[in-house]
Design a protein around this nucleic acid. Structure first.
Lengths: 337, 337
DNA sequence: GCTAAAATATGAAGCGCTTCATATGAAGCG
DNA sequence: CGCTTCATATGAAGCGCTTCATATTTTAGC
């Protein structure tokens, strides 16, 4: 692999001149003739810069890191995709890390990993929801190089969050307007907490309408199969809900199939609402009504926030909470085939 | 950020000693006392190695690159996921690149990018299928650091391929055995070529059975929506197929919905078969029969091949073609609800 | 008590690049 | 013609680490 020194030797000039030419340094005046000679030599040798060396010398890597759950979940896949595009069009590279909700690949480990890989900054999707805001577990020097995605923070770190409570609140209101009185809420067991914003939003809407508590239905995880499994017990649910809000779309999609197997029709026997707004729901046989997170906007803003920081364009806190929107399709019964 | 030199200063020893201790170099004997002193100093300073510098000095990055289409396609997401796990458990990091089938982010650009990031080796999913085998567009020195994923190669590069023809051949045989005489094949327009293995497999099975050519139905892409759009014309298909094989599962899933909207029932009016074996198909209302690619095995082998190469454990060609398996569910009509 | 070997620790070179202070010539000026 | 200017090009230091030949000290062997 040819190095700068090889090119310099071949062109018969100094290393630093080659560097100046190949980087198009504006202040450095190099005669056209020398420039051509260098370019030619580089071309002939098939010279390619070594980014490691460059990054080491420059003190930056032009790389941003992203930490998310897992890429097999379409929701995260889409986030990763949007983030990557935004990062790339801003002239950076993306380094992707998944934490799989696994202690071994925890946030901390990932952040450290990214950080020591010397990414210039990072976006992190918090792996657990702390009701009072996420704390970024990082050395002080790394603060100001992190934007939290999807959650708000307790320590002043920049974030682009999503108002989950408002999302489920609106979904619930909509179901109430359709005449539902008894709701069900299907979520991973550990997220069935009253202080979890998704549930909180439902509770608020119900209590404002003077309606009873929702039936809480636990799932073993947040994938299709978990929703499916949970829905197999639908005939035993007491009190019998007429509408079911799900923690996310995957759960809703799985539940849909389980409900069908139990002979329950969506939306006639049970209205169904998901959360996230992934494309999959649109192609459910009865297209899924869902609380859609503005993934594209969220990703772009987060990248923008991070770059603002890195390039010193702001020293203010950058914190925003986006409101998801209710996308009404057929599964909630508001719209007929 | 503390450096080795800082630690050395604090512990009152030479830089090289610190390096030896922190890397646990086995041949270097350091007294227990010195070791403790160094460890303590490192701890106190919160020392973390700079991977850039280390990689530069060592001449390797302990990082492998993966080039795939896009992460929003569950098939690729799963591949990325499996590859990442395999790479990680082999002690490497993964650098992911997507090419989105976009000339701007072409294979070549990606490979170069990865290569100049000085990944130790890379896995590449070829972005276009050349019937006579994929040629990896790379400088010679980089050969032997590449494993092609999903396709076979013409230039001797290692690969883990998939016998697509055999997959569709078996699917077609199965449909024939179920009594179907007229098949349809739905694929992205550019893949509706007789020399494309997926179509070739179908043709072979049909011709062996003395059956007529399949109806070729073009889609505008390889996503759900493309299958959906294509299926909206189902009532006009001539000759009218009784079974439809799709290029991939996403297309099949989209087609399913389009067929339903056209009042066609799967499998009664039309048997449906997909390709890939992604989880989504399992949760289609009429679970999707599909030709399942052994994604996990494929990913693991590819990573293994690459690591064999990198660690010099082999100089032989490593080339294998995996046979996908037909997963029979309800959409082909062989199995009742 | 002297030498050889083992146990420890060190310094310097080098990985490939950037950057900046400095050198070299050629014009330009009075 | 000696002086400054400007246009070009250079050399050396440094980024943080690894590595290896070498130095120093200790221990063992006889």
């Amino acid at each position: 692999m040819a190095t700068l020194a090889d090119v310099a030797r071949r062109a018969g000039v100094a290393l630093s001149t080659v560097s100046a030419v190949l980087n198009n340094r504006p202040d450095c005046f190099v005669s056209e003739e020398t420039r051509q000679r260098i370019l030619k030599a580089a071309e002939e040798l098939g010279y390619r810069p070594n980014y490691l060396a460059r990054s080491l010398a420059r003190g930056k890597t032009e790389t941003l890191g992203l930490v998310i759950y897992e890429v097999t979940n379409p929701y995260f896949a889409q986030i990763a995709d949007e983030v990557e595009q935004a990062v790339r069009s801003a002239g950076y590279q993306l380094l992707l890390c998944t934490n799989r909700d696994d202690p071994e690949f925890s946030d901390r480990a990932n952040l450290e990993l990214l950080y020591h890989r010397r990414v210039d900054g990072m976006l992190v999707w918090a792996s657990r929801y702390p009701p009072d805001g996420y704390l970024v577990p990082l050395p002080d020097e790394a603060k100001g190089k992190v934007v939290v995605l999807g959650y708000h923070t307790a320590d002043g770190t920049d974030y682009v969050s999503v108002d989950r409570a408002e999302g489920t609140y609106r979904a619930t209101q909509h179901l109430i307007a359709l005449g539902h009185r008894q709701l069900g809420y299907l979520a991973p067991r550990e997220d069935l907490r009253r202080d979890h914003p998704k549930l909180a939003g439902i509770l608020r809407a119900l209590s404002e309408a003077g309606l009873p508590q929702p039936l809480l239905i636990p799932a073993d995880g947040h994938f299709r199969r978990d929703g499916y499994q949970a829905a197999l017990t639908a005939r035993e649910w007491q009190p019998r809900p007429t509408a079911l809000i799900c923690y996310n779309d995957l759960l809703a999609i799985g539940a849909y199939r389980g409900l069908r197997e139990q002979g329950l029709k969506v939306p006639d026997d049970l209205a169904l609402v998901g959360f996230d707004g992934i494309e999959d729901g649109e192609f459910l046989e009865v297209p899924l009504t869902t609380v859609a997170v503005p993934i594209c906007e969220m990703s772009q803003m987060a990248v923008q926030f991070l770059i603002n920081r890195l390039e010193g364009r702001t020293t203010e806190r950058q914190q925003i909470t986006l409101i998801p929107s209710l996308v009404i399709r057929r599964s909630c019964g508001a719209q007929r085939a």
